[in-house]
Amino acid sequence: MAKGVKPRVKVPKTASAGEMVTLKTLISHKMESGQRKDSDGNKIPRSIIHRFTCAFNGKTVVDVEMGGAISTNPYFSFDAVVPEAGEFHFTWYDDDGSVYETKKKVEMA
């Protein structure tokens, strides 16, 4: 597992049935692109988060394939529908096999 990886997500605590909510996610990660060279001129191998998914009660909101051109500390913002009370499930997949997860509950207003 890459060091110090910490996900942050912004999800409203409550919503009314069928409401559209804006979600924001940020995760600490170097996103080593594989394009940089070290001081000896050797290529630094790629080490990135290559996939991010968000689902609500098992239903996919977004599924993102990510390349090395996504900035350090990847940020995403997108809109989801909240049809009923439940849970958003966010997952990040690291090149090194690590999986970072976080969940947020939404109550009906």
């Binding site: 110090g4 910490k6 942050r8 912004k10 924001k24 940020l26 995760i27 600490s28 500390n73 940020y75």
Partner: peptide, 12 residues
Amino acid sequence: DFDNPAFVFIDQ
């Protein structure tokens, strides 16, 4: 504060 990437380090 959510858009501000510095808060990753504040959290740490």
